[in-house]
Each structure stands twice: as structure tokens, then as C-alpha cells.
Design a protein around this nucleic acid. Sequence first.
DNA 1: CGACATTACATGCACGCGCATCTAATGTCC
DNA 2: GGACATTAGATGCGCGTGCATGTAATGTCG
Lengths: 124, 124
Amino acid sequence: MSDVAEKELVQEWHELLARYSAVFSTLECRLQESHGIGANEFEALERLATCDFKCRSADLISTIHLSQSATSRLVARLEKEGLVERALCEVDRRGIFVTITDAGREKYLAAKQTHREVLREILR
Amino acid sequence: MSDVAEKELVQEWHELLARYSAVFSTLECRLQESHGIGANEFEALERLATCDFKCRSADLISTIHLSQSATSRLVARLEKEGLVERALCEVDRRGIFVTITDAGREKYLAAKQTHREVLREILR
DNA sequence: CGACATTACATGCACGCGCATCTAATGTCC
DNA sequence: GGACATTAGATGCGCGTGCATGTAATGTCG
């Protein structure tokens, strides 16, 4: 790989990093102050609000980019705030289904406005 | 903003997020196991290794995307491992200069290989 | 000069994260 | 059916982070 190509690659990474950081921290800040939820919490709510019916805890992992343990705790926090519910999966009693509550759906719809605003402001 | 444009914006964000997460976590993992440093530590070392001479603590903040306090602790960790040195700035005795040590430069050059490998693997 | 604001960095604190591990349920193979 | 591996999710633990604040040095303005 040539020096030039390597520099371009590194520059691309720095741009990606800067872009991500700017959007994420702004999302974190604005969602927190306006709706009391974090950016990851929002992503989880969005996934739950837009997926058709039942959603496994594991399904959330692929959406929000967190570890299994972090996802587990994230769901626990959301449940504690009454935004989602955990239900036993009767077919496979190891697993749980996570479903969004009405309160969660309301929170999502409200936060969605803020979320899109930030994307329009920072991403473009 | 049309629904289509909004969907594109959201999709772009998700791609950015996925791309960032993939690169960062791989960097974190590979740099840690091969060189015992994190991805943020590497970015700091790179900044210090490539900037001409003195570098203020504050200058690092703009490079690595961390808060002032996190940056302060990052420098403290690097100093503890003998990779950088903190020197009083005689002109403005509030500030400090952070300089990379020989050991730090060696570590950087070694880790750089791994860093570039990951970028080539994941980013492209 | 002296009071007050500002700046540069350090630090106490609460919290979210990943890793390793645990528990319980399910799958596999003889 | 019974022993063992595997899977889904929860949890103890150490650590890095941001926020708020502390400390010390510098700038500002009367």
C-alpha cells in the first residue's frame, strides 16, 4: 500500500470518527435534556417501535452496537422507566421478548423529532 | 423534509454508526492484545509522535474526541506507563506540555502497523 | 495594586461499558 | 433417558467516561 493511499485511509478514519463523535454526543445531550433518555436508549426504542411484534433481546444487539451485557442492562433501565416490558418466551423459556409500552411509544415519537433535528443539523 | 429524505438521513446515520463501531471495537481489541494500549491511547500517541515538538494537553482534545477530564486521565495513564512526559510550561504555568518519550515512539511505531492493518481490513 | 473573571488542568463522583462468569433452559449423542 | 455441550440472558467486577467542581495561574478593569 502506497503512502498516499495509507494517508487517505487514515484521514477517512479520522473523518468517520469526528463525524460520529459530533452526531453521537449531540444526540446524547439533546435527547437527555429534552426527553431524559440516552442515544442508545432511543435506538432501542426505535427498533422496538418499528419492528412488527415480538423482539428478542438478542435482536437488539445487532441494532444498537453494544455488548450482550450492556444490552441486557439497557433493557432493564428501559423497563424500570416503564418504557418497555420483558415477557417470558413460552417456546424457548431461556429467552425473553421485549415489547414497547404505550408510554414507550409516546416517548419514542416525541424523541424522534429531536433525533431527526440533530441528524439534519449535524449529519448534513 | 420528505419522508424519503428523512429515511435516507436515518439510514446514513445507522451506516455511520455501524462503520464506526466495527472499526473502533476492532482497533480497541487488536491494539490491546498486541500492544497493551487502547484506541484512544493510540490516537494520542500518533498526535504526539507526528506533531512538531510541544503539544498542549488541550491540543489533544481536538484530536481524540474526549472530554477535558478524560483527556487529562488519558495523559496520566500514558505517563504512568512511561510513554509520555508531562512538563510544566514556563510561559504559562497553568498549562503543561505533553511530549512523547522514546518508549512511546517505539510503541507508536509498532502499534501503527496494527492500526493500519485494521483500517485496511474493516474500513475498506 | 486589588478584586473578580477566566483559563488550564486535576479530581470526586455516579454511571454505563465490556469481560468473565453464573444460572437456567435447550440441543445432541450414545 | 442421562451426560455433556450450547444457548439466552443476568450479574459481579474493574475501568474509562462526562459532569461538576476544585486548585492554581493568568488576564482584566477600575
